[in-house]
């Protein structure tokens, strides 16, 4: 077991992503080599435009790299076909976006089991039920997204990411649209998923408080990893951002 604790759920090797050519060329990622431990909660921070979203998208197989490699477990993504990438996302990756996470025609429960339904696989009902209870959606299962509050919608999104027991969950500013109390509940829940269920989560955030829920913070600037911090506190992260800004 201790082995898996230190194994990498996902990593990149010399990952570069260049948009455009010539004058309009943007190096969104510039030779990034980073790994995310299994069962760890990692936060990615950095100024706007520093490449945080790009890093997540390329690692999740939504966007190909210009140079370098990314891995989910042992699987190198650039060798996969479009269809294999889709299946990989369905089985090994969970997503939580800032907003518009849910399919409006599906109920909360259907949204949660969506990846399993798409795989025509049998959802682990007990596990799903457990997840739903933990995020506190027990009485909202059959509601449509437009009948849920923003916080509840994000909880459904988190539950969906967890329900298929993916190897890694990518969350891009999952609390960016929420007030701090609701956001705090979501973050609490994500942290307990990591601590108690051994889930691996990588989360992009601009918020020092949100970052303090994580085990490790990776700082990006201009497409490069510039620093990282273990067992962060809100104040330490805040100070660090300020120092980087200087």
């Amino acid at each position: 077991m201790s082995d898996t604790m230190t194994a990498l759920a996902a990593r990149t090797e010399g990952a570069s992503k260049i948009y455009g050519t010539g004058d309009t060329e943007v190096r969104a990622l510039d030779d990034v080599t980073v790994g995310f431990n299994q069962g760890a909660f990692t936060a990615i921070m950095g100024p706007s435009g520093s490449g945080k979203s790009t890093l997540m998208h390329t690692m999740a197989g939504l966007d190909p790299l210009t140079k370098g490699n990314t891995f989910i477990g042992d699987v190198e993504l650039s060798s996969l076909s479009e269809k294999e990438l889709t299946l990989l996302r369905r089985e090994k990756v969970g997503f939580i976006f800032q907003a518009f996470n849910l399919i409006p025609t599906l109920s909360a429960l259907e949204n949660i089991t969506l990846p399993m339904d798409l795989a025509k696989g049998q959802a682990d009902d007990a596990w799903v039920e457990n997840v739903i209870q933990t995020v506190g959606l027990g009485d909202r299962k059959s509601h449509r997204p437009d009948e849920l509050s923003g916080g509840q919608q994000q909880r459904v999104a988190v539950a969906r990411a967890l329900a298929s027991k993916p190897q890694i969950i990518f969350a891009d500013e999952p609390t960016g649209n929420l007030d701090s109390r609701t956001g705090g509940e979501i973050l609490d829940f994500m942290r307990s998923a990591v601590r108690e269920l051994g889930q691996t989560i990588v989360m992009v955030t601009h918020d020092a408080v949100a970052a303090s829920y994580s085990d490790r913070v990776v700082f990006l600037a201009d497409g490069k990893i510039v620093d990282e911090m273990l067992d962060p506190t809100a104040d330490a992260v805040f100070d660090h951002i300020k120092s980087l800004g200087d």
Partner: peptide, 12 residues
């Protein structure tokens, strides 16, 4: 919505 479906694993 279609993009989201693809992201969470709907094949083409």
């Amino acid at each position: 919505e279609l993009g989201l479906l693809r992201a969470v694993g709907m094949t083409r």
